[in-house]
């Protein structure tokens, strides 16, 4: 479904991504782990061209998103993304946050979008907040809203960029539960995370990134129990105890 071919990204002299060729299949749940500065987030952000790769290609559903003249907005509608800092829209109500894009981009009528929005909000336990403004929500609630906002577009894949890193510890669980629920329902998911327990539990595959490359990858049991690469061992030794 998503494939990168010799992806490079440099910021000035800094090579953040160095030759990443990777394929993510329909229905996969891929966790990307690794030390900070290893290029995890940049890699994820290249998949929907929030970061424009310096060279290389990103294929989505067989289409090269990096080719000139492509309408990237159309493809972004099919890829949901959730950010570390939620980025919910503070000037809109919770329900408006959810319905804005589907209505604007003509995926649904207003009534239909509100209906669907309420269903989704109910699914993540935010039904009673529909008319509130996001400033009244806790961090965990904001992130659940951000997930629903993305889901309202019926994406084919969800990208999560450290979705729990900005949360108070007691709110991490509620957000992970929502992601887990998505995964269980078969959503193709790519998640950059520091939650090793979660990555181990939900992923079908784990990518370990180091210095702009995928240093090691495999099923979670293999990566977490029998890491081969010394850098993976070192990293896991630090974060798991």
């Amino acid at each position: 479904m998503i494939e990168t071919v010799s992806l490079y990204k440099t910021f000035g002299d800094l090579g953040v991504l160095r030759d990443i060729s990777e394929r993510i299949q329909d229905g996969e749940v891929v966790s990307i782990i690794g030390p900070s500065g290893s290029g995890k987030s940049t890699f994820l952000r290249c998949l929907n061209l929030l970061e424009v790769p310096t060279s290389g290609s990103v294929f989505f559903d067989g289409v090269d998103l990096t080719q000139k003249g492509i309408d990237i907005d159309l493809y972004r509608q099919r890829m949901g993304m959730v950010f570390q800092h939620f980025n919910v829209f503070p000037h809109l109500t919770v329900l408006e946050n959810v319905t804005l894009a589907p209505v604007m981009l003509k995926k649904r009528s207003k009534a239909d979008a509100e209906d669907y929005g309420r269903q989704l909000l109910a699914r993540v336990g935010l039904s009673d907040k529909a008319a509130e403004h996001p400033r009244r929500l806790s961090g965990g609630q904001k992130q659940r809203l951000a997930i629903v906002r993305a889901l309202a577009m019926d994406p084919e894949v969800m990208l999560f960029d450290e979705p729990t890193s900005a949360l108070d510890p007691e709110m991490v669980g509620e957000v992970l539960a929502v992601i887990q629920d998505l995964v269980k329902n078969g959503m193709t998911t790519i998640i950059v995370t520091h939650e090793m327990g979660f990555a181990r539990e939900v992923s079908t595959r784990v990518l370990f990134m180091d210095e702009g490359q995928i240093a090691e990858q495999g099923p979670p049991e293999a990566i977490f129990n029998h890491p081969q690469n010394p850098r993976t061992k070192e990293f896991l030794g630090k974060v798991l105890r």
Binding site: N48, L50, D73, L74, R76, Q77, M79, G80, M81, F83, H85, N87, V88, F89, L100, A101, M104, L105, A146, R149, A150, M153
Partner: peptide, 17 residues
């Protein structure tokens, strides 16, 4: 916050919208 723009663009809104 630039995150607002990024969030809107990832939903598929164009720059003008």
């Amino acid at each position: 916050d630039y995150g607002q723009t990024e969030a809107a663009r990832t939903l598929g809104l164009n720059a003008r919208q």
